[in-house]
Simulated assay, not measured.
Amino acid sequence: MEMKSMRLGLIALSATMVSGAALAADIPPRTTPAYVAPANPYDIILEIGAGAQVAPAYEGASVNQAQPFPVFKLHYLAIPGFAPITNSRFDQGFSFSPSFRYISKRKASDYSQLAGLNDVDATFELGGKFAYTFGIIRPWVAVRQGFGGSDGVVGETGLDFIWRPDPVMELTLGPRASFATSAYMEAYFGVTPAEAARSPFLTAYSPGGGFKGVGAELSARYEVSSEWAVVGKLAYEKLIGDAADSPIVKVGDENQWTAQVGLSYKFGMRLFGN
């Protein structure tokens, strides 16, 4: 009798476990909903503008002149099928942004120190800038390919120390270094034998690639509104190495100063529909 009761109890327990397992299989497991970031209403957010600068008339010049300069920054880009590119000034970690520079034509007849040299056509440089921000420190490097007067590669690297006294103001200060390939150095610091024969000041010189300058930069940004900002920069570069040894610099100045102030406008656009 006891064996029969135990057998019936085991059968009942087994039936209960099987029915409980079947019921559990019918109930979806409880999960915490994943956080979904709000969709950006734009596919691209750009900042463009312009300003005026006082800068060396050409690399190695002893005279400065007033020149216009452009402002361009990519804040956000989302291409279907790819991770979005973000470049907010408050972002931490890795960031990428385009880097470009326009160098106006160097006309030898405009400067007595360049007498006998060939003109160097205007150059447009296009490339990218990579940075890593942690806290108030941001190391970065920018590399660009030249098209036009110089087809060399040129770039800069630096370390920014960031100070934000309030949400609309940002100041950065840090060391800088610039570098270039031999093709760039030949275009802006080289002197061919034929040019040297025509020049009353310059001897033939063929520079190699490498670091061409070191210095420091102070930049400022003040956001007047969510769209408009005033930007400025004060930079110093001392030409070094083969750049400093160039006869063009010897009759000019290895100390190069640049001051800029400009106004920029930030806006977004849809590129790929709704």
Results as ranks from 00 to 15, higher is better:
Ala57Gly: 02
Pro41His: 07
Phe96Asp: 01
Val18Asp: 09
Phe82Cys: 03
Asn40Gly: 08
Gly51Pro: 04
Pro98Lys: 02
Ala39Gly: 07
Ala83Phe: 06
Ile85Thr: 12
Lys73Cys: 07
Ala108Val: 02
Asp43Gln: 02
Tyr58Glu: 04
Phe96Asn: 03
Arg30Pro: 00
Ala34Cys: 11
Ala55Thr: 10
Glu47Tyr: 06
Glu59Asp: 08
Ala66Trp: 15
Phe69Ser: 03
Phe72Lys: 01
Ser104Met: 03
Tyr35Met: 04
Ala39His: 12
Thr16Ile: 13
Asn40Glu: 04
Leu13Glu: 13
Ser14Gly: 14
Ser104Gly: 11
Ala12Glu: 12
Pro98Phe: 06
Leu23Lys: 14
Phe100Ser: 10
Tyr111Gly: 08
Ile79Met: 01
Gly60Trp: 00
Arg30Asp: 11
Ile103Phe: 11
Ala108Glu: 06
Lys73Pro: 10
Glu47His: 04
Ser104Asp: 12
Asp110Pro: 09
Leu23Met: 10
Phe69Ala: 08
Asn40Ala: 13
Val54Asn: 14
Gly60Lys: 06
Asp26Phe: 10
Pro84Leu: 01
Pro28Val: 08
Val71Leu: 10
Lys73Phe: 09
Thr32Ala: 08
Pro33Gly: 02
Pro41Glu: 13
Asp110Gly: 03
Gln65Cys: 03
Glu59Pro: 05
Phe90Asp: 14
Ile45Ala: 09
Met17Cys: 15
Pro80Leu: 01
Pro84Met: 05
Pro38Phe: 10
Ile48Asn: 01
Tyr102Lys: 03
Gly60Ile: 05
Ala55Leu: 04
Ser95Gly: 15
Thr32Ile: 05
Leu13Cys: 12
Leu46Pro: 03
Tyr35Lys: 10
Pro38Lys: 11
Leu77Val: 04
Pro56Asn: 02
Pro70His: 09
Lys107Arg: 13
Gly81Ser: 04
Pro80Val: 04
Ser104Phe: 10
Gln67Met: 10
Pro29Phe: 01
Leu46Asp: 03
Ala83Pro: 00
Ala78Leu: 07
Gly20Gln: 15
Ile48Met: 08
Pro98Asp: 00
Leu13Val: 15
Thr86Asp: 07
Pro70Ile: 06
Ala78Trp: 00
Ala57Glu: 10
Pro80Met: 02
Ile103Tyr: 11
Ala78Arg: 08
Ser62Ala: 08
Leu46Cys: 03
Asp91Tyr: 09
Ser14Val: 09
Ala37His: 11
Ile44Thr: 07
Ser14Asp: 11
Gln92Ser: 11
Pro29Gln: 13
Ile85His: 10
Ala66Arg: 11
Gly49Phe: 05
Thr31His: 14
Asn64Ala: 01
Asn40Ser: 01
Asp110Leu: 12
His75Leu: 13
Tyr76Pro: 06
Ser97Ile: 05
Ala21Glu: 13
Ser88Glu: 12
Thr31Arg: 15
Gly60Cys: 03
Val63Gly: 10
Ala22His: 07
Ala22Arg: 12
Pro38Cys: 14
